[in-house]
Amino acid sequence: MEKLLEDFSLGLFVWQTVLFVGLLFLLKKYAWGPILSAVNEREAGIKDALNLAEKAKMEMENLQADNQKLLKEARAEREAMLKEARELKSSMIESAKTEAKEEANKLVANAQAAIETEKKAAIADLKSVVAELSISIAETVVREELSDKSKQEKLVESMLKDATLN
């Protein structure tokens, strides 16, 4: 202990104190202050950037979800439209079909009616023609037959025969 005290150099102590305090203040002003503030700033910057990235990621996710939703909606809408169109088409075809059928039926019925009337007219015509013809034949025959009595009778007889056959 005595040797320690004897070794203690006051000059060195004074110089050490003065130089160290000087160094401390110089470094505080020119080194530690700027270093620590720069480091803090940088750390704050990194933190901000990370937060920002996180936020951007969240926004992106939201946006994507929105897009998905929109897409889904659009798809559903398209689906509905297609369905509607398909239904419309089938109903149109159906109605057209029934209409056409009705029309055709009507046409057929008309035609049939026309044919019927035509037929009736033709039959009537034919009847009158046959009647005329038979009258004229009968006239001719009568005229001829009247000239000969036996012949007249024979003719009538044959004609009658034919008529029953007819």
Binding site: L26, Y30, A31, G33, A38, V39
Partner: peptide, 14 residues
Amino acid sequence: LMFFLFRGLARSYA
């Protein structure tokens, strides 16, 4: 040495 070393470090940030 310390003064120039750490002042250099402080300046390098800027």
